[in-house]
Amino acid sequence: MKTAGAPDRRIYETMVSIRSFETKLQELSRKGVLRGSVHFCIGQEAVAAGVCAALSPGDYITSTHRGHGHAIAKGARMDLMIAELLGKATGYCKGKGGSMHIADLDLGHLGANGIVGGGIPIAAGAALGIRQLGLQNVVAAFFGDGAANQGVFHETLNLAALWKLPVVFVCENNQFGMTTPLSEASSQPDLAKRAIAYDMPGTRVDGMDAREVFRVTSDAVGRARAGKGPSLLVMDTYRFEGHYIGDPVVYRTREEVEDWKAKDPILRLRKQMVGEGLATEAELDGIHGEIARKLDEGVAFAQSSPDPDPSELFTDVYSE
């Protein structure tokens, strides 16, 4: 494999990890071993993978209820994630957070979030903290098109632009806030235009093209790191699945879903890599096989892990 393909390969691996992880969860759900709310990001992999590939190890992210992809892209261990989703003591949050609260502060992952828009001001706050501590890191805030209609979106974009905070606002426009299409939720469906109000660059990005996501995000991260302030990146993407397990999906047509599936970000990058001679089909198949093996190990690890000790109910509420 050529070195020029390095980001491609990493992004491809990440996207396949995310897709395979979510598919494995669906399998576990069908078997009845998965409890609680789980929101899949199948179809949106290029956004998580492309954005996180543009970040450096000390950089931070905030994530959303549809956050498995962001965690994997930031380097989270899939076995610990599965253990968390099964509520086990070995999980990322000792079984206290579940799907919507996976975090790994050592990796710079400041947490998924059950509140739509809840992570946006936290991201700007982390950027402020970086500034207060005299560090050079950058924060990427993931949120959806639904969150763009929350008050904190506007408060935070204003504050971050005012103070030129090192944050990149990544709006994953998957076209629906739960079941409501963007056209019925936003007076201005081109969400990138909202950046104009806060005097920051606003860019609409093909969120199904991982290379493009990486390229645009790299520019925004560079700008943030250079002290030039935040950017708003609106990634046009699509969730191939419903909002949640069991969603009857009455709010969109089969044809629309098929149109978006034709833009599958994994197949697209694969075609580009193979077409440009950066990888062979066999090499890429090998990546799929390796990830499948890791996931099987992860499931076995999670299923054989103990439940939390009853004493854990009362720990971790306060720091000593």
Partner: peptide, 10 residues
């Protein structure tokens, strides 16, 4: 929110 985020990073 900014205070929570700033606190989270130290």
């Amino acid at each position: 929110g900014a205070a929570v985020g700033a606190a989270l990073v130290g």
